[in-house]
Design a protein around this nucleic acid. Structure first.
Lengths: 333, 333
DNA sequence: TTGAAAGCGCTAACAT
DNA sequence: ATGTTAGCGCTTTCAA
């Protein structure tokens, strides 16, 4: 039942209203420069024909797409949270979000290429794994804002959480509860992992707990969290800080299966405050990244670059905030 | 440090390679009709200039977008799996996937509207919640393929799993192991829930276990699974079939926390065979939806409709397959 | 206030 | 195998 007729074009409207295309163009864009009567006649004609401007042609001619390309990992819950907030942040800006997913069968290069082809005017990359050099090269072509990862290159903008500070807050919280044997399950080479490790080490040292500091190789998946937890079972600490919530989920699961009560026997702190952590039955104490602020900053920064506004700092660091929930408690002695 | 130079166009590549625009156009689209050497030279020139075709101009000229719009829920792991396979399925077809996410702040209507504005030629909707009437109306404007939900309307194509059959397989498996007290935690009003309930009831009946049949209200989130599991704790069956893997995860979690061993005390079967189920530490027995086949069919169907090919059946039902993993075992007596 | 004409970057039909 | 030409639907000079 699809209507077979061609869509109306600007020329059709012009013909029907008995004016030139330019006039119609003006009126459709609400620009001044057309007589009141003419304007009315044109709007009428457009309405009668059910005319809607073709945005592609419009963009082609004006040389702009008003598109913000977003590359995200479809497997990452926290990226889902960020995407959610990016849509919101872009809503009133006059720019639109174009999504491109990284999947097990589609790497970042491919995801990025698609967006480039759509002539996005800037790219927002969520925790990209590509080497700095690639990102820098990309940034020679269009503004690039990296979210939730640190990149030391003058060409790319960065909006990230003060990750070291986040781990410090986690450790402080645990120490305040009375913990000393606090382990960190890290994120390996994942974005942010190095800084979180550093934050953990510094915090332990500043509490005079160097002797207890212990880092277990983890990762960013449940899988890797579970494996790390199994290592832990031989020599259980009273508290664990984990690279992210997803990984912490794996840790919690293994602990539960081996009869270790959380937080009774072991306290656990995650990172991200992703959807996972907020689930009532998980109720994970975690370091919240301020997704709303970060995405707003990222969108704002991207647009500033597009429009050539002066930008003060390449890197914006957003403070994290510890969210205390049910997986932390004083150690039993 | 962004190079101030204009973005490379097809004409630039042509100039650099010393050939005409048409030749470049051919080569970029991988069409036959260019010599091997020329082709190489053109590709080189394109690479050196960092050339990417402008999809808007392409669309404008050819009157087509070759875009397949995909609407998915960013919170649903299984949708993530489907999106992954959709990219793969579309890879060699000459069509591209355009993603639009449903988030807590962005409903299906909005997600769909974005895709329409992008002039997608067909829509693939993953488990849409919109009423049939809305979907039917949409289908008057362009081909619509609904994935993983049943829709009884002659205007929309459907590719889905034989959900009743899936639950039958789950129950059969459990009965074969010796279970009788088998409970179903359902999906409420979620897509597929009604049919899975029916499959469960029929299977129980066919085994003469009507007396044991019991359905607990669940849902499609971990949250709802956890709540349902808590209800179960008062009167624990020996086995549970759950609406989907995500919900089953909540069930497993609550059982573990209350000291119920899986599969020792209770066997659990999920649905979807999503990433969650395959995690080594979860190792969930589940009913696999054949995502690869379903996505291939959905893409094929969408393209058939676009290109006006004859389509035999509106609805394609793909058989499910029980994947036995570690959460099911004979009951202890 | 209005219109004519020249493209934006590309593809397609038609040469050669 | 390669080049020429004419637009797609719109915006944007520039003239009238």
């Amino acid at each position: 039942m699809r209507s077979a007729e061609r869509r109306a074009t600007l020329a059709d409207v012009a013909a029907r209203a008995g004016v030139s295309k330019s006039l119609v163009s003006l009126v459709m864009r609400d620009e001044p420069g057309a007589g009141v009567a003419t304007r009315r006649r044109i709007l009428e004609a457009a309405d009668e024909l059910g005319y809607h401007p073709d945005s592609r042609a419009r963009l082609l001619r004006s040389g702009r797409s008003r598109l913000l390309g977003v590359v995200f990992g479809i497997q990452h819950d926290f990226h889902g949270d960020l995407v959610t907030d990016l849509y919101t942040a872009a809503r009133e800006t006059g720019y639109e979000v174009a999504l491109s997913a990284v999947t097990p069968g589609r790497d970042e290069r491919e995801a990025t290429a698609g967006l480039l082809q759509d002539r996005c005017e800037a790219l927002i990359l969520l925790g990209p794994q590509e080497p700095t050099a690639s990102l820098a090269r990309l940034a020679t072509r269009l503004p690039v804002v990296v979210l939730a990862r640190s990149v030391r290159d003058p060409a790319v903008d960065v909006v990230r959480t003060a990750d070291a500070e986040g781990l410090r807050q986690a450790v402080d919280h645990l120490v305040r509860l009375g913990h000393r044997a606090i382990v960190h399950i890290d994120g390996g080479r994942a974005p942010g992992a190095a800084e979180r490790r550093r934050g953990y080490r510094d915090a332990m040292r500043s509490h005079g707990l160097d002797g207890y500091a212990r880092i277990i190789p983890g990762g960013l998946t449940e899988e890797e969290g579970a494996a790390a937890a199994r290592v832990l079972l031989d020599d259980v600490p009273t508290a664990v800080t984990v690279f992210n919530d997803r990984c912490a989920t794996g840790v919690l699961d293994v602990l539960a299966r081996h009869g270790r009560a959380v937080p009774g026997d072991v306290s656990v702190v995650g990172y991200d405050d992703s959807r996972l952590a907020r689930l009532a039955h998980v109720d994970l104490t975690t370091v919240a990244q301020d997704a709303v602020t970060m995405t707003r900053l990222a969108v704002g920064r991207a647009i500033d670059r597009i429009e050539g506004a002066a930008v003060a700092r390449r890197e914006v660091v957003v403070p994290p905030r510890l969210v205390v929930r049910g997986t932390t408690a004083p150690p039993l002695h």
